[in-house]
Nucleic acid binder design. Structure first.
Lengths: 340, 340
DNA sequence: GACTGGCACTCGCTACAGACGAGTGCCAGA
DNA sequence: TCTGGCACTCGTCTGTAGCGAGTGCCAGTC
């Protein structure tokens, strides 16, 4: 059973009004606020159909209608177009992001900006190590049996890790090790390094063999097994906006999910490209987030994503506005990172 | 008007019961649960005095008594002794912290551990840069006019910053710069570096002068002006424990404060020594945290603090237990860091 | 003088009843 | 196909009443 244009207009009006007022919307209010050109009774009939199809529901018999997750989905897919950002917003983005001094700074500014503009919880993934390549590796002796390994990636990420050597090694050997790993690994993508690292061990001079072996283990562990994905979070206080109506009364599950890096990565870190994803309510695979919606996208120079970013809010959110903001911020960040 | 022993016992009983049940405690319940050896009527008289002195209050006329911030203060100062940790807890701490591979790892594990043990929000400051000394400085060329400056501190902290050079410089000059800054700065405390950095510029060979000047600005900015204090946070979901009774109904101000690094640093980062601080309710200078209590301490090898850590929770918290846990965790972390 | 039992009182909480009103579903008619 | 009208539902609000936890006070006891 298809929905004609007017029914869709009614759904759109319901979503817009509900998002704005956070109160169930009735047929009378609807015809008053939107130029639908028909009477409340007609709207009621349309509502009955929409309800039957699962796009809206009534919290209780004598109340107005509220969009369901499915209703929001239809709204997002077919009834809304992405709002262009206001010049003020564009300026805000630029102003906020220029002057960032390093990657950390970029990420932190971005996440705050996103939280502020959308008035929701923002999540930004650091550029994925898997998609970075090695710019430089540094070995700093801490003691004769300990080295600090510092890897600098082309995305600006800097990762360190302590290396415990099996036997003490002299300073010259550290220099040799440093030279060797840099010669072999600089410039290669992290995902491609495992065979190279393997080769390093095999080709190492006998007296370096032991140290190189441990070093290679650490390298593989740290850089490739991608425990080291990172995220930044901001705007959790925005969860309390809108009383306790959103998130069906309890912030608990949401806060718990937000603290699990793994969960958040799954949510926003899977972006391979810079297309925007919208997950509404129970479309979400993470149980704790069944009462929330997530708008996310990849960011990066061009169309390939270095990492993901997004926002999380109530299913009752301003989707067009949020989508526009998320995209715009991602684009700016992508450009910013491309400059380095 | 002094409080005799029994009145103090009554106060202690009220605090303990209220913390346990989260409900105003009446005179009858009190004599039943604690061996006070007197009748409810007597307890009521004592309560009247305690209320007059501002240690407890009645939420409403026909309700039991609840400790005031002042009451908790008295309880903490005079009526409680720090609970020794259970062996299980000690083991949990050790198990959780061994195997940390670098500073980030230590900090993250610590903050999670603390949140888990105290069931509250935990905050851990990274070892303060101001109290670290330079172990190594690395300069990595990004382009002919850009360097990545990486500083490795003896506390394990690694900070990076992009340096935009006024004019392109050749690779050999970068090597020279690296040698120079390392010769001068390695081993010195960050707080002592400004004159050394100054000297570096003055003593630099003419062709390095320009680069060294920008480099020194960045060095001073990044390392000394201590914007770069960092903190880690965990357990925000614990704020929702105990319904909405704690924090007078709104998590908003708390969540807002937790997101402000500056605020958090002020709260736990001022520790100069490893003594424990307890801030109860409105003793707190931060308005947003007037409804919360904070238990914090410095951690570090020996008695000097490298940084601070602590937990934040409702004023109605298990102070003896929390204090014990915070101290224990701080001690373990201190030892762990001393090993590096 | 300190403690106790008793008693009147306060007041928040719950339950219940009734009025109100927003909003619906349905139907007959245009 | 749309519309006006109407009966109906049901959540919310208001007011009342009863309950019970807990208090404050007082007179009596040790």
């Amino acid at each position: 059973m298809g929905l004609d244009d007017r029914k869709l207009a009614v759904l759109r009006a319901i979503v817009e009004d509900y998002v704005a007022t956070q109160e169930p919307v009735g047929s009378r209010a609807l015809v008053e606020r939107h130029q639908l050109g028909v009477s409340p009774a007609t709207v009621r009939n349309d509502m009955a159909v929409l309800e039957e199809e699962g796009y809206i529901r009534q919290p209780h018999t004598s109340a107005g209608r509220v969009p369901t997750d499915r209703g929001y989905r239809l709204f997002v897919d077919r009834l809304s177009r992405v709002k262009p950002l206001s010049p003020a917003e564009r300026r805000a983005i630029e102003r906020f992001l220029v002057g960032a001094v390093d990657l950390d700074d970029v990420v932190h500014r971005t996440v705050r900006l996103l939280a502020q503009l959308t008035r929701q919880v923002a999540v930004v993934q650091y550029p994925s190590l898997a998609r970075s390549s090695v710019r430089h590796l540094e070995l700093v002796p801490i003691s004769t049996t300990r080295l600090m390994l510092v890897m600098i990636a082309d995305t600006g990420r800097v990762e360190q890790r302590l290396v415990e050597l099996p036997t003490p090694i002299p300073a010259e050997d550290v220099t040799d090790l440093r030279r060797l790993v840099n010669e072999k690994l600089v410039g290669s993508r992290l995902s491609e390094t495992p065979p190279l690292v393997q080769a390093l061990v095999e080709e190492a001079a006998p007296h370096l063999r032991g140290a190189m072996t441990t070093l290679s283990t650490v390298l593989l562990e740290t850089l490739v097994e991608r425990h080291e994905e990172r995220i930044a979070l901001a705007g959790t206080a925005n969860l309390t906006r809108g009383g306790l109506l959103d998130f069906q009364g309890s912030l608990r599950p949401i806060l718990e999910a937000l603290e699990e890096e793994v969960v958040m990565l799954k949510l926003i870190g899977e972006a391979e490209s810079t297309t925007t994803r919208v997950l509404i309510g129970d479309e979400n695979e993470i149980d704790n987030l069944r009462a929330a919606s997530v708008v996310s996208t990849g960011y990066g120079p061009g169309a390939t994503a270095l990492g993901g970013l997004g926002v999380l809010g109530p299913t009752r959110m301003d989707y067009p506005g949020t989508i526009a903001t998320v995209r715009a911020v991602a684009r700016y960040v992508g450009e910013l990172l491309a400059q380095n």
